[in-house]
Structure formats: structure tokens, C-alpha cells
Simulated scan of single mutants.
Amino acid sequence: MSHQTLNLVDIAVDAGAIRLVDGVSLTLARGEVVALVGASGSGKSLTCAAALDALPAGTRRQGGQVWLDGAPIAPERLRGRVVASVLQNPRSAFNPVRTLGDHAEETLQALGMEKSCWKERIHRALREAGLDEPQRLLGLYPFEMSGGMLQRAMIALALASEAPFLFADEPTTDLDVIHQREILDLLAGLRERFGLGILLITHDMGVVARLADRVLVMDQGCVQESAPVEAIFRQPRHAVTRALVAAHLSLYPAQEITP
């Protein structure tokens, strides 16, 4: 396993004259989970979208650079090759009139992979994501799959790219508690087996406690606090961090929150 490091430096995003993300920087190493947390609208997802040049209409990156192992790298070289992505609503991420096999072929074709390798690669990735009977699953449409299966399928497509880093944007938000735990266990296992560097975008401090090594807390487009996960829970410094931790403890007062 290589010791690759990804750096997002001074990422800034505007919507017209409004600054939505202002100078966000972070470092992510292989085998590490960094959580980017904050309330809805704090700029978490926009930061990652800007790094990959995948911003929604009406927004534009106004500054910043991504570096891989100390050298700048263009967004088109990042997407799907260095960084794979998992989105928060798996059902909306799949075309409802195309099978999982169609999506897999589109993904592998975009990566420029030899067609003779497609079947072996996607079958292996589906099994690595905890989905048995890959041949049967590839013939299914999204409406024939549960939310948990679709989230695993999205993770499988990310694994098929063999990218060393994964941006996971609210990967458990739309799942029931059983499937949430299964997906978190899966991500933890993939990190251990493949040395994935995972940037976890979430507002759920329970997810942070379960997976993260380090935490960056965002508010109003800026990073307000950065610390190891245990320090975030035991000694939160910023008011926003304290509010996030307090909200979590009010819902789960008896939960073990430290690693």
C-alpha cells in the first residue's frame, strides 16, 4: 500500500456575489478517515464538489487547488481515478430505466478500461461491497433494489475504479438504522482492507464517532475547528462544535462516543 496524500488547499466557492465556501483546506492520507462536519448549508458538500469540479449550476469555484503527493492535479484526473464518490441519496443517483449492469458498464467505459476486464472487475467489486450473486444483481433496475442494496451498489462502482480515495457524502442519511450500521461497518472494513483514504461528509456525530480519525467542523463556509475525533467530543472548543456534540448527546445520552 502506498502512502499517498491528498491536499485541498484554499477552496473557495461563490454563487454570484455570495461567498459560500471561503478558503477551506484539508489533508487526507490513505488509510485515514477525515470527517467534514457541520449543519446543512455549512459548505461541506460544496467543498468536495469544488475539488472535483462538479459544482451545481449557479456556483463557481473562485479559488483553491488540489494536490496529490505534493504536486497539483487537475479535477479531470481526480474524478473516478484518484477520488471515487458515494452520494447521500442512492436512489436518486441511479437512472431508473437502466439496470445496474448498464451503470457499471458506463462507469468502466468512462475509466477507459478494456472491455474484456469489465465482468471480472465489477463482479469482484460487488462482492467486496457485500453483494452476492453479482450476475443476477446486474440485471436489476433500481426500483427492484432496497436503499441499502443501492448504497452498496454505489460503493461497488466506486471500488471498481480502484481509486485510492473516497469522498462519501452523507452515506447513511436515507437508510434505516440496520442498514446504516451495515454501511458503516462496510466502509470501516474497506478502509482496513484496501487502505482507502475516506473524506466523510456528514452532520451525524454518531457516524463521526464510529469512523473518523480527525474532524473538521464547518460553519458559514469556513473551517471553525480541526482536531482528532476524541478531542472533538471531549473538549470541543468552538461554539458550533459544542452545539453539534450537545445535540448528539441529547439524542443518545448513553452512547459511547469516543473511539
Rank of each mutant, 00 (worst) to 15 (best):
A93C: 09
W67S: 08
P56V: 14
G80M: 09
I178H: 14
I232L: 14
G147H: 14
R60A: 11
E225P: 02
D219M: 13
T241F: 12
L78D: 06
T99M: 09
T5S: 10
L52V: 06
Q65E: 14
P56H: 08
R242Q: 11
G80Q: 05
S2C: 03
L20W: 06
R191N: 13
P142H: 15
D169R: 08
D14Y: 08
N7Y: 09
S42A: 14
L26W: 02
G58V: 14
D185S: 14
G64Q: 09
Q109V: 05
E256C: 13
R214S: 01
A74T: 08
A125M: 13
K119Q: 06
P171S: 07
Y141V: 07
L200I: 13
A243K: 01
P142M: 15
A57D: 15
T241Y: 11
R127Y: 05
P142L: 15
P171W: 12
A246Q: 07
V33A: 00
R79P: 00
L8E: 05
G80R: 04
E230R: 15
H238M: 15
I73Q: 07
P72G: 01
P134I: 14
D213W: 12
V215C: 02
G64L: 14
R193E: 00
A188F: 12
L140R: 14
P259D: 09
L184G: 01
A168N: 07
L175D: 04
G148R: 09
L100N: 01
L138C: 05
A39V: 11
T202P: 01
L166S: 04
R81Y: 08
L150I: 12
Q180C: 05
V223G: 05
A29Y: 00
A153F: 05
E114G: 08
S92W: 11
A153S: 06
L8V: 15
G112M: 08
Q109M: 06
Q109Y: 04
G16I: 12
L200C: 08
R234W: 10
A243H: 01
L68F: 03
S42R: 06
V34W: 02
E170R: 10
Q65K: 11
Q62C: 14
G63C: 10
P253D: 08
L159H: 00
G148P: 03
R136Q: 14
P171I: 12
A50M: 12
R30K: 03
H248W: 11
L126D: 01
Q220Y: 11
I232D: 02
F194S: 00
L150R: 03
L186Q: 03
D132V: 13
G58S: 13
E106I: 10
H248V: 10
D69I: 09
M145S: 06
F233T: 02
R181V: 14
E170Q: 13
I155W: 03
S85K: 12
M145Y: 10
L126P: 01
G43T: 10
I122Q: 01
R79E: 02
R152F: 10
A12E: 11
S161C: 07
E32P: 00
Q235N: 12
S146K: 04
F165T: 05
V86A: 07
G23D: 11
L157W: 03
G221P: 01
G70C: 07
L249M: 06
M113Y: 08
